[in-house]
Nucleic acid binder design. Structure first.
Lengths: 159, 159
DNA sequence: ACACTATTAGATAATAATTATTTTAAAACC
DNA sequence: GGTTTTAAAATAATTATTATCTAATAGTGT
């Protein structure tokens, strides 16, 4: 934990940014909730415990900054809010997500899986891939059996 | 074109909805711009040429309805607007997109490509896949050579 | 054709997320 | 220590989308 904070501090200062107390509090909240996919509002509420005087705009600015420096990733699950998660250290690419259409839970797929497909796409479409986003929408193991007509669930929920 | 309008009319009436003049105008705009990824605002402006009295709320309602009936798909490219596109007729799954980080152009990948991966994911994660979204972010063939440091482009743009 | 009922549209207000602005405070640098 | 720069706070503004409420329209049965 401390190592990672220190590392982020270095990443910031490498671009002439400082790890202010507000930024540090925000980073710590993100680190402490690494498995979740927090929205700016979520982060704001959690950060307030550590630093009650912080403003929502500061949280937004910090998240934007961390995102610019590619320390965190922005995610969009189509629910109208941007979510944030730490970029896996050293990982070339982003991992993937499983979104349950029944309960809304988001699980992670930590394998890349797309390697061969990317090679094919780069060749066929003459497109240089830098990043990707892959999300599967369906029924998670917890909801299996509870859902009678899965197709009905898709509707306008998926984006 | 007329066939497709007629077909949509049937899909609507199968669920007790009518193809009102406003809805028809909206559908026609979507059909005429099938290659694009229009936002609600885009659709609204285009529909106004055909039916100047239409309201923005009606366009939103119509898009939501078409989306519920799975006649169109909602898309989210992380630019803060929901975009819409026709669902390929008879296609089991959604196709994929190539987004250029330099010029913003969105190209289509019409092949599915994910078949084997889905089988693997369903088995390994005990997750029943109903739909998916796959987007590659990078440099399109048009911008190739124009971009010196592609990695720089990622930043906070990708969600 | 006519009244009746339900559906849909229009207009506009409300909401919600995010961004911009303006002022104030903190830090860094001579 | 005074000055310049950088970031934060507070709040206003913007933008996309949704909700509300009334009026129009279209079927339905008589």
């Amino acid at each position: 934990m401390e190592d990672r904070v220190k590392q982020i501090k270095q990443q910031l200062s490498a671009h002439n940014y400082k790890l202010t107390p507000q930024r540090e509090a925000t980073v710590r909240v993100l680190l402490e909730n690494e498995e979740d996919h927090l929205s700016a509002e979520d982060v704001y509420l959690l950060v307030k415990d550590k630093a009650p005087e912080i403003g929502l705009a500061t949280v937004y600015r910090t998240l934007e900054l961390l995102s610019d420096l590619q320390i965190i990733h922005k995610l969009n699950f189509g629910d109208g809010v941007t979510r944030y998660e730490f970029r896996a250290e050293g990982a070339e690419h982003h991992h993937h997500h499983l979104i349950c259409l029944n309960c809304g839970t988001v699980d992670e797929i930590m394998e890349d899986l797309l390697g061969p497909i990317e090679v094919q796409v780069e060749r066929e479409y003459d497109f240089q891939i830098i990043d990707h986003r892959l999300t599967f929408h369906g029924i998670c193991h917890r909801c299996k059996g509870k859902v009678t007509d899965p197709k009905k669930l898709v509707g306008s929920k998926v984006t």
